[in-house]
Amino acid sequence: MVDVQFRFRDDEAVNDPAVTVSAFTEQSNATAVRIEPSDDARDLLPSLDRLALVEVAFPAWTDGRGYSSARILREAGYTGELRATGDLVIDMLHHMRRCGFDAFAPEKPLNTSDAEAAFARWENVYQATVVDGRAPIWAKRHPA
């Protein structure tokens, strides 16, 4: 297993071994699951409350299905750790945060200062994603 390089949670790190989505739906005691790009994140929705960790695999960062998986889980109320693993690139970290990822385990460690700059780069955002709680630009233009 690769190490978590960046984590944005205060709770204790989850180190339970992650099982595949099909194994998870068959066995009731697992608390960590790993989503591959072709898995359907919605299969997890009936049992979100017993999950402490969801790993989303990025075999290649240019396969963007994991972004939808992440948002779907967060939109359904998942509050556990959502960890991106695999081929992660500095320039997408900020967008991954916005989709709900709060832990990052790149297969090759990223330059820390470049990554920190990337996480902090965008002071404002155009879209509301319920998952990151940030007010989009349109909300700032039209305060309630």
Partner: peptide, 14 residues
């Protein structure tokens, strides 16, 4: 345009 600019979920579509 604003919605689609830097849309966090849709930057690496098929």
């Amino acid at each position: 345009r604003q919605w689609s600019s830097f849309h966090p979920e849709f930057l690496v579509l098929p």
